[in-house]
Structure formats: structure tokens, C-alpha cells
Design a protein around this nucleic acid. Structure first.
Lengths: 164, 164
DNA sequence: TTGGAAAGTCAACAAGGCTGACGTAAATTC
DNA sequence: GAATTTACGTCAGCCTTGTTGACTTTCCAA
């Protein structure tokens, strides 16, 4: 057993353990996105649309630039996605009242319906995984993920957590 | 507190908790890929090359079709990546001796060097996250990720685990 | 010897990233 | 009041990485 003078078990820090964690992330992320991907395929949308819908739903009235910093893409990339969502009547874009340069984004009823479908599917998988692993494992899961984020992303994540 | 008659705490299964887990996966995966992405950018390779290199290193001598089933992409997509890696002298492709239709893939010394660089960076982040969260959290992390995989992916994952 | 599996190739296409350049309206600063 | 900055949108073009479809070559096995 790999014990330090301090007494901590360091077996979880071996390269072999780390590699297993890396591969677990790879395979699990595939599962994580599989259900929404399946729903979106063939309806002219993709993962990028899902992400936009998720975070607009999460923070109704958010501005374009706020969404940009959360998603970490260029405005051209986001705009392409946003435009189709607005054209298709899933997202509503409103000029800001206090600052008219800003656009505030909301899901329409139609947008809320799709969001529902997507998040139901994704939550179902997450729920099954949580249930199988148990509450203590879930706490650890969240701890490791949070520690894995870039500081800037952790800030975004925590800001969303508080808001909700 | 949400306690069932059985006594289990079900707070970790609320939609709110599940949503936090979903967002944690999203932000953490960004961090997870950030360092290799940075290394590969500007050297004509991308994430797909990293994945191929990782799994060839992981299972030296693996066949193309085995790699296909691990990566879950089409052979055309994998072939494009593989071709550049072979042309650039990072990967060696050998006709099978027992079955000459198969191609057995190995990293060259040059390929091993890049693999080293990529996995060092990715492991460093993972190690920091593991260290920050502690061994118990790491066990939970792995449990939840494993439960999140599609059964087929879990099979692939476990087969790799045993091998290593 | 022939059918079918494994591998590779070509062509075409789409999603979704990126950069650079440009335009407009509104807010802010000088 | 003029100049600058900010927020957003858009056009054009590029890259990576995924897809389908069609086709060939190789070669094992029934």
C-alpha cells in the first residue's frame, strides 16, 4: 500500500489510476450527450443548439455576451445557432430597456417544450447513474468535476449554482 | 430533509441536483480537454488525433476495427486521422501475420513522445483534481461516471481496465 | 472457387468551431 | 457635441471532424 509519512493513501494518484479516470471521462461523456443527440438528430439541430437552449432556460433574460462567456465560443458561432433558434420560434430576443444595445434572450413556449424533452432525457440518465452510485459517490463526483474545471469556468459554474 | 420510509436521503436525486451535475459535466469536460487541445493547436492535429494516439498507446498492436469500436466513429473518419499520423511517422501500421487483412497499429518513438506530452498534461490536471478532492471523492467520481456510460461503452471501458 | 469480411479510398456534404473585416446603434467619455 | 467604446449582427472563408454512399483490393473460410 502506498502510504505517505502523513498516512494518506496515495494509490488514487498513480498514473494507472489517473489513466482510468481519463478514460472514464471519455466514455461517460459519450453517454452524457447520447440522449439529447439522438433527440436532436434529424431535426436540424445539434449539440450547440442544446447548449444554447440549456443556458437560456437556466438564466432567462440573459444577454448574448453573457451567453458567449458561458459557452466559450465566438459570437459568429453562437450567432449562427441563435439565429436559427429565433427564426424557428424557440427563442425570443428583446432589446434591453436600460441598455438598448443588449439583447435579452428567453425561450418561447415552443422552446420550453424542446428544453423539457432534452433535459428530461439527460436527467433520466443522470438520475439512474446517481441512484446506482448512491449519495456519497455523487458528492465525490461533483467534487472531482469541480476541481477539474478551469478557474474561470468554475466561476461561471458557481454563479449558476447560486442563481438556481 | 427528503427521507423515504426506507431512510435513504433522496436529496441528491432532485431535478436541481441533477441539473448541477449536468452543468458540472459540461464545464469539467472543457477543462479535461483544454490542455491537450492547447498542445495540439497549431500542429495540424486535433482531438481526434489525441484519441487515436491514446488508445493505440493503451493497446499496442490493436487493429483498425477494434479502434473503430472503441472510438465510435466511422472508418472514413478514423482513416483520415490515421493516415496523417502514419504519414507523419507517429504511427506504424503493420499487416497482420495470422490474418493479413488486419492492420496492427503501434506508436513510433516520435508518436510515443507526443503521447507522453499529451498524457502528462492531462494527467497533471487530473492529479490536481484528485488530490484536491481526496480518495473517497475519487471513488465516487469513478462510480458515477461508470454508471453513466452506455452498456457497450462500459464493456469497452472495463476491457481496457483489465488489460492495464 | 466463390462469398463475404476487413481494410482502404474517393467524393460530397454538414455541423460547428475559428479569424478577419465591416456596419450599426447606443452608451460613455472627453 | 464629438469621438470613442461597447454590444450585437453579418459576410466571407477556413479548418476539423463527423456523416453517407459507392467502389476496390485483399484474403480467409466455407
Amino acid at each position: 500500500m502506498a502510504e505517505t509519512p502523513g498516512g494518506e493513501n496515495l494509490l488514487f494518484l498513480t498514473d494507472e489510476q489517473l489513466r482510468k479516470g481519463i478514460e472514464a471521462m471519455f466514455f461517460a461523456y459519450r453517454g452524457f450527450t447520447a440522449d439529447p443527440d439522438r433527440i436532436l438528430e434529424g431535426m436540424n439541430y445539434g449539440r450547440a443548439h442544446h447548449r444554447a437552449i440549456h443556458f437560456i432556460h437556466r438564466s432567462p433574460g440573459t444577454t448574448v455576451s453573457n451567453l458567449l462567456s458561458i459557452l466559450g465560443v465566438t459570437k459568429q458561432s453562437l450567432n449562427r445557432v441563435l439565429r436559427t433558434l429565433i427564426e424557428d420560434g424557440l427563442v425570443r430576443s428583446e432589446k434591453g430597456k436600460v441598455d438598448a444595445r443588449e439583447r435579452h434572450l428567453h425561450l418561447t413556449d415552443k422552446g420550453l417544450m424542446l428544453e423539457r424533452e432534452l433535459s428530461d432525457a439527460q436527467r433520466a440518465r443522470m438520475r439512474a447513474a446517481y441512484r446506482a452510485a448512491g449519495p456519497q459517490a455523487v458528492a465525490g463526483f461533483r467534487q472531482v468535476l469541480e476541481a477539474m474545471m478551469d478557474p474561470e469556468m468554475r466561476r461561471q459554474y458557481n454563479r449558476l449554482k447560486e442563481g438556481g
